[in-house]
Amino acid sequence: MSFFSLISKSGFIGYTLILLSVVSLAIVIEKIVMFRSSKIVPKDRLKTMVMLLSTNKIGDVIEFCKRNRFLLSEIIIEAFRNIGEISRVNFLNAFEVIARKKVAELERGMTLLATIATIAPLLGLLGTVLGMVKIFGVLDAGTSGIANPQQLSAGIAEALLTTVFGLIVAVPSYVAYNLLQRKLDKLVLEIEQAGVIIANNLKGFK
C-alpha cells in the first residue's frame, strides 16, 4: 500500500496533518539556517571589534559593522545610531531595546511550531472520532442486513491512520521545538554577553 493511498484513506484530517508537517519542516529548516552562530555572534569578529574599541576607535567599529553584516553588527549600528550622548549606560540601554526587537524576529515561527506540536495529536484524535462515527453509521445501516465491508473498512482506516499521522507530525515537531528553543536561549545569552563586552570596552566613557 502506497503512502498516497494511506493519506487518501485518512480523509481530510490526514491531508490537514500532511500540510502541517510541511509547515513544521519549513520552520525547522529556516531556524536551523538562521540560528547558526556565525550569523548571530561570530566570535572572531567580536574580538576584532573589542580590539578596535581598545584604541578608542568607535567610528572604525561602526564601519567594520557596516562592512560585516551579522545580527550583532546590526544591533551595534542601531545602538550607536540611537544612543545620543555616548556612555556605557546609554549604549547598554540602546543595545537592550534593539536586541529585543532582533530576538523577536528570531522567535518568529517558533510559536507556530509549538502550536503544530500541540494540535497535531488532537487532530489525529478528531480523525479517530470521525472514523468511529462512520463505523457506527455503517453498522447501524446494516442492521437489516450485512454491513457494507468497504465502508466499514474505510471508517476503521480513518480512525487508525489519523491517530498515527497526528503522532508522526507531533513528536518530531515537539522535539525540534525544544532543541531550537534551547539554541535560541543560548544565542540570546551570547548577544547579551556581547553587549556587555562592547560596553565595558568603551574606554573614556562613563
Rank of each mutant, 00 (worst) to 15 (best):
L46F: 06
P42W: 08
M132P: 03
T143V: 15
I83N: 00
F35N: 05
L46D: 02
F165R: 01
K134L: 02
E30P: 07
R88Y: 05
S54H: 12
E190Q: 15
L180M: 12
S73I: 13
L167H: 06
L179M: 13
I32D: 10
L6V: 12
A117I: 13
K57P: 04
G14H: 00
S5R: 14
M132Y: 05
Q150H: 12
I77R: 03
I168P: 02
V138Y: 08
S24V: 06
I98M: 03
K47D: 13
L126S: 06
T162Q: 07
L184F: 12
L184H: 08
D140N: 15
F64Y: 15
T128N: 01
G59V: 12
S144T: 13
N178C: 09
A94M: 12
I191W: 11
L123N: 04
C65S: 11
L125I: 15
F136I: 13
A194I: 09
R36W: 10
N201L: 10
N56Q: 15
I7M: 10
S37Y: 09
I32W: 02
E192C: 09
L123Y: 08
S153E: 05
A194T: 11
A94I: 12
K9V: 04
S54P: 03
V171F: 02
K183P: 05
N178T: 14
I116V: 14
L53F: 03
L187P: 05
A79W: 03
L161W: 01
E192W: 00
Q151V: 06
S21H: 00
L71E: 05
S38L: 11
A117R: 11
L130T: 10
I7W: 00
G195N: 03
V129S: 03
L17A: 09
A199R: 10
K186G: 12
I27W: 04
V28P: 06
K101Q: 14
E78V: 12
L161V: 02
A199D: 09
V23Q: 11
R69N: 14
G59P: 06
E96G: 09
V175G: 08
I40A: 02
N90D: 07
T118W: 07
E30C: 09
A120G: 12
F205S: 07
M51G: 11
I18Q: 00
C65P: 10
S24G: 06
A199E: 09
F136R: 03
L139W: 07
G131Y: 06
V169G: 01
L189P: 02
F3W: 14
V188E: 04
M34S: 14
G127P: 00
G124K: 04
A194W: 05
V23G: 08
N56M: 13
I83L: 00
G131D: 00
P149K: 09
T128G: 05
L25R: 04
K186I: 07
F205I: 05
P172E: 01
V171T: 06
V41R: 03
E107H: 02
L126P: 01
E74L: 14
M51F: 13
M34A: 14
L52A: 08
N93V: 13
S2Y: 08
I58V: 15
P149F: 08
V50N: 07
M51I: 11
S87K: 03
